[in-house]
């Protein structure tokens, strides 16, 4: 039931490039419609910066409908801002109070170096996916649909894990900058399904090894990731990944480097 437009004070992390040190800079955000998304508010601020001849604030965004995982931003101490289960593009300015000071920071993790201002390099996630987040499929005749029976509960669980958009909010929220929620979701979405079974034991080893190499922290089961995830990925995935990893390492024949070898020729 808003009567008019809103004004805010923004404290934004400005950093020229990966090699520079950055600092917090204060900007006014004036005449903002409460129905604007957070990213649209930043667009308006950037317009005024451009008019003044200043460098606009760089931030990541793409689909602006909550499915691509590109937008980030650590807003007032929380990834994707104060609301649950949404991305920053789905956050509206009516979620803030008129006159409020809003602190905006990039994701903070050694594995997510800042590219510029609020944009961070999340290619560590891509490398983890490339290390094992796939099934190897040989081409051939078109198989019949539904030829492999999958219980509904399993299909649903795998789908829940697959809703991870790889935005990195879990890493940003974790006090240890751990990527285990992301990796476990990607391990689970394939490991639970029949199509993922041939590479199940090599996949988990390959993805955990790559995760460690990227320099993420270690999970201490606080559950902050689960609470901040825009897709509500459950901590159950981490437990599942651990179980698969220990099974693979201690009781299975497959080795880490076997991954991707079973399907291709």
């Amino acid at each position: 039931m808003s009567t008019g437009n809103m004004n805010f004070t923004l404290k934004v992390w400005r950093q020229k490039d990966a090699n520079s040190s950055g600092k917090m800079v204060t900007y006014p955000a004036e005449n903002i419609s409460p129905d604007m998304s957070f990213l649209e508010m930043l667009d308006v601020v950037n317009e005024s910066l451009i008019h003044k001849g200043e460098e606009p604030i760089h931030f990541d965004h793409d689909c602006r409908e909550g499915i691509c995982g590109m937008c980030s931003l650590y807003i007032n101490g929380r990834p994707h801002g104060p609301k649950r289960a949404i991305t920053t593009c789905q956050l509206h300015m009516r979620s803030f109070n008129d006159g409020e000071t809003i602190t905006i920071e990039p994701w903070r993790a050694a594995a997510f170096p800042v590219i510029k201002d609020l944009a961070v390099d999340r290619s560590a996630f891509d490398r983890i996916q490339q290390s094992g987040g796939f099934v190897s499929v040989n081409t051939g005749g078109v198989p019949d649909a539904n030829i492999i029976p999958i219980p509904k509960v399993i299909a649903d669980e795998a789908f829940n894990s697959a809703t991870c958009i790889g935005c990195g909010a879990c890493v940003a929220a974790c006090k240890n900058a751990s990527a285990m929620l992301f990796v476990s979701a990607k391990v689970s979405q394939l490991g639970m399904l029949p199509q993922g079974q041939p590479e199940r034991w090599s996949r988990v080893q390959a993805m955990v090894a790559q995760m460690d190499e990227e320099g993420f922290g270690n999970c201490t089961n606080t559950g902050a990731c689960e609470a901040e995830c825009p897709k509500e990925i459950s901590l159950l995935n981490i437990s599942r990944m651990n179980n698969d990893y220990f099974s693979a390492k201690l009781f299975r024949e497959e080795k880490v480097h076997d991954h991707g070898a079973s399907g291709g020729e």
Partner: peptide, 26 residues
């Protein structure tokens, strides 16, 4: 593990994280 976890976030956040995690877990 704590040393590794500290290294994983070399630059701290300005605004404090008030994520709904239990006090003892943190």
């Amino acid at each position: 593990l704590t040393v590794n976890n500290t290294k994983a976030r070399p630059v701290a956040y300005v605004a404090h994280n008030d994520a709904p995690a239990s006090w003892s877990s943190k």
